[in-house]
Amino acid sequence: MSTSTLRGRRRSQLGILLGPASAFLAIFFLCPLLIMLVYSFLEPGLYGGAEWAFYPDNYGRILGFANPEFEDYDPVYISIFLRSLKIALITVAATLLVCYPAAFQISRLPDRWKNFALFLITLPFFASLIVRLFIWVLILKKTGFANMVLAGLHIVSHPLELIYTEGAIIVGMVYVFIPFMFLPVYASVEKLDWSLVRASQDLGANGFQTFWRVIFPLTLPGVVGGSIIVFIPALGNFIVPAVLGGAKVMMLGNLIEQQFLGARNWPFGAALAMLVMAAVLAILFFYIRFEARRGDDAPVLR
């Protein structure tokens, strides 16, 4: 059999295997995305809906080139975007800080305890997100548990403003996203070959050198993967800021939700959503570049 027909068959097999997933993504992801993209360039109707006319001012409102006849540029949108970016990055860093050492500890437990620990990590999924977040409200509010403890220990004389702050949002986000960070990080830590660590020590490297030269590079794929899985939904999240940020601290997700459901300005909401999308695509682009560089010299399967 010639290689070309073999390759042809491979290709058709690939088509069959990837077909359903591709069709699903095309219908339920690409189409809505395109619709959003089109909407973001339409003129908002006076009482909701959209007028069929090219209207770049949705973006102008956000980025500063609005035609003042129609829309006003307001720097608040950029600052909300930057705040969302900051909160998402802090969330990534904090979940990583919690999960990375924990993954090492758990991967070295005996099997029985390991499974129990993994069960504990996934336990929060069994309760509703809203319920879990409202528990944080009970903890953080003025008369809540945290203030009670602080007052009881005479650390503070007046209750602190804990809830409806950026800090509260970050605490909530970290709490929600820990399992998402933990699983990919744990997968790569669990895979780590400890004989390589021994080889490194044998060749004269101390703990710190071994970590930077061997352990960290080999677990980096899990760290990068977990960071992306946390960063993307954290950037657009609106439930956590809605519950724990209240009316005081808003993130992009809340803004978008408001435009669609409250202000009924779909085109502007779509433009904001595209902004999130652009940030996510940029991140994914770098991720793919990273993966490609790592896989460059991998034996190519033909």
Partner: peptide
């Protein structure tokens, strides 16, 4: 171990998979 003047050839070689031969040998 890192302060003993002894080196080991491990049973499964334990070469660092993310480093090329030069960096493995020069470690």
């Amino acid at each position: 171990p890192h302060r003993r003047p002894v080196n080991t050839v491990f049973q499964n070689y334990a070469l660092f998979p993310h480093m090329n031969v030069g960096n493995n040998v020069g470690y």
